[in-house]
Design a protein around this nucleic acid. Sequence first.
DNA 1: CGTGTAAGGAATTCTGACACG
DNA 2: CGTGTAAGGAATTCTGACACG
Lengths: 104, 104
Amino acid sequence: MSQSYKDKKVITIGIVSELTGLTHRQIRYYEERNLIFPERSKHGNRKYSFSDIERLMEIANQIEDGVQTYEIRKEMMRREKQLDRKEVKKMIRGQLNAHFKIRE
Amino acid sequence: MSQSYKDKKVITIGIVSELTGLTHRQIRYYEERNLIFPERSKHGNRKYSFSDIERLMEIANQIEDGVQTYEIRKEMMRREKQLDRKEVKKMIRGQLNAHFKIRE
DNA sequence: CGTGTAAGGAATTCTGACACG
DNA sequence: CGTGTAAGGAATTCTGACACG
């Protein structure tokens, strides 16, 4: 759970651009393609997390390899489903444990 | 070493202000008093880390308690010296270990 | 499809200073 | 001492669009 920092959306697009080497245009486009989801400030300024930055660099690599944004998105969703399944398993396991503990 | 995120200076003063509840004026003043050391972008915009934010909140608490910036700074340096001593001890220990390992 | 760019506007940040106390 | 504020300027970010391919 050191996610507190990694997932907190606090970085402006200018700094993200510096850190990733991508242009503002590219970063916004990947958002338009639903590959990344920044938060917004009151005024509407985008705010990114370190996780977002890592994801952007992965996206950039795939784009360079000729992968289309649609494919990247599909792969992303596939992976998320995998994670979901793991979460479900974890929960079930937790509930079973709780069950047996009570029984003991 | 999960410091990579915590210590990376990537947050603008506006977001720091939101996160800490301090005004820009206060944040800049604490810098003027050498309590905090943001980096700068090319244009000169301040960039803070999550560590800086935590430190700012500690500073704010002390100011509220009537502690003067000078005192806060003094305390800060005292603590740093302590850390330095620990580092020295660690290094000596490490060298001793290396020494005995070689002897073995 | 992915990215560059000029366009115009609105919010951000900066510095140095006066003010109060 | 610590903080508010008005001042003026410079860089940041935003959106929608045209362009190339």
